[in-house]
Nucleic acid binder design. Sequence first.
DNA 1: TTACTTTACACAATCGATTGTGCCTATTAA
DNA 2: TTAATAGGCACAATCGATTGTGTAAAGTAA
Lengths: 367, 367
Amino acid sequence: MAPRKKQAPEPTTTSPVSMADLARELGVSMTTISRALSDHHSIGPAMKQRVLKLAKKYNYQPNRLASALRKGKSQLIGIIVPYIEGRFFPSVVHGIETAASKAGYNVIICQSNEDVAQERRNLEILLSAQVAGILVSLSRTTLDFRHFEKVRSRGLPLVFFDRIVEGDKVNAVVLDDQEGGYVSTRHLLSQGCRRIAHLAGPQHLNIYKNRRQGYLDALAEAGIPLDEALIHYSDMNQEQGIAAMRELLSLPEPPDAVFAAGDYSALGAMQEARRQGLTVPDDIAITGFSNEAFTLIAEPAMTSIDQRCEEMGQAAVRLLLEVIDADGAPFTPRQVALRPELLVRNSSLRQPEARLPAGKLVSSFTP
Amino acid sequence: MAPRKKQAPEPTTTSPVSMADLARELGVSMTTISRALSDHHSIGPAMKQRVLKLAKKYNYQPNRLASALRKGKSQLIGIIVPYIEGRFFPSVVHGIETAASKAGYNVIICQSNEDVAQERRNLEILLSAQVAGILVSLSRTTLDFRHFEKVRSRGLPLVFFDRIVEGDKVNAVVLDDQEGGYVSTRHLLSQGCRRIAHLAGPQHLNIYKNRRQGYLDALAEAGIPLDEALIHYSDMNQEQGIAAMRELLSLPEPPDAVFAAGDYSALGAMQEARRQGLTVPDDIAITGFSNEAFTLIAEPAMTSIDQRCEEMGQAAVRLLLEVIDADGAPFTPRQVALRPELLVRNSSLRQPEARLPAGKLVSSFTP
DNA sequence: TTACTTTACACAATCGATTGTGCCTATTAA
DNA sequence: TTAATAGGCACAATCGATTGTGTAAAGTAA
């Protein structure tokens, strides 16, 4: 039972004022209050003023639950990410929350922990929370997409980001990985490198496949024949970067540059190269991918590709809001590809005069 | 108007089944459905089975809005953090989400962007969303805490973490910073260092004040007189670490160790020391604070204090759930201090035989 | 057999806001 | 002067689940 109706209310807690309270005080109906607050045309300006004033006086806060229940739509956007760790997802979430709150929405976050079953449960929860739309980055173990059918059948706006369902039937926002591979490789070519190795990731993951394709495109464009021996496949961690570099340097014709599809493997590669007495970038230029925080700390500072995390979040929200605002009207799914940004740093700059002084600031971010 | 009531429903969207639908199908009242699903004693086992079966058949998902509206409490926990960036807050949020979802709650996240006004708005929003409880880490600009009074007056469970309101009247979870400063300094003492400098942060922030106090405690315990010249105050970024080290090394009696109250300033200090030709840790040992990702990448790998981010999130949720479960009963506020963990790495290890080989793995985290 | 429980379910109010419809009073057009 | 229109507000149903109370039927004790 609501405490407010009791004769002896607990002295420690206060109930929020409702529209009914305002209506009583003003001697009008709740209809009038509701419409006055939402600036409905059928309420006179005088009454609107009175209502607004009273609402301010009592610091009236609408009960979003009641509103959402009645309207069938809340002001909540659901997010499902594999996890909230590392650099990428937190930044995307940051972008999402910022853009969403600017549009009057709040976000409710779920982690799938890379588990399809959990992803399915999260989806159910968001559905039962009556969210206005859902943003998803797929778990690694998601191979079957049927659980998203239910979302579609409810007519609930859905946008994938980063780890997406392929095809033109879904709304999606991704980084243009192929472009990233292309500009990275072109940059190395522009530095005079001709035997450019590639540390590639698992090719069943689209991001790695596309980065490799960009690499191939740039080489082809430059008329450089592909040497399969220069492409090393792994899971892209630091250890594997070390191993990869060891192999590459033992080739009869070792590379003069490395485009790694990930920063961690690039780091390992760089460490191993230096351990073997090579100078980076003079003997071997190195570029990474993802713009992890440590790329600026590394010595030399590592050239990398920024993944536009925040922009991705913003773009995802923009697209989602479009679908939400279409309000059930037929909406043709759209795929957005963000332009990656090449951050050129010392690990790939062959001209010493272009290099930045060592010990450069990490960033303006003060924790 | 609800589409489900129309004669010609849109063919593309399906409405979720409600309790009313189940009741109609079974020819019983909604009361029965509701109570059967919540295992109420007044429903017979046979009926319970029938209801459960039908609910499963139709994949019935309760409308959490309706439930929350009626019960006056949702299954949502509100979080307010300054931002979702860097290493600390995302990890805490990770811990919070994990612990909360385990307990059947979901989290709705707000960023204050270090702005009190935004923090106030976020609080209003969470209140109007009827959350079951709120977790807050204060913005830097929050000096006045009156907006939290409204939360208390509603009887809404509230727990602060990391950046807290001081005093024993609030629930709070923090890292024991004093202990962190103490163990760091003791560690340096154990390495034979005797002139230990301290890079201190703004003393109006409790975390920095406490870290400094721990440093003082350890020195006093070791019988080493305090030399104020060895304490350098700044805002703790990399640049200021460089400047600090420059000053310290120009002292008539330069230090043989540095305990920095932050990793970024420790990094700057380390870079400057090496630039001046000193060897770390042999000439000067260095420790940081926060266990930022780059501490493992740095050369030498940097000794630091782990802030127990995830544990902090978990602890905050545990405490919040206690208050929630107390359900209005008088609850004596509690303050929890987490034990920091000293991660000893090469930057402070004077005995070469104890050191880890360079090029050690960053971590098992594969992005 | 009578009286009293217990079991099993339905009725109906309720949470707080929204909205289609209806009604009355001015105002304007014819 | 009459009719038509617009303005301004109230009524009451509604969203979907929860819960105090009422009431039969079945079971138990006296």
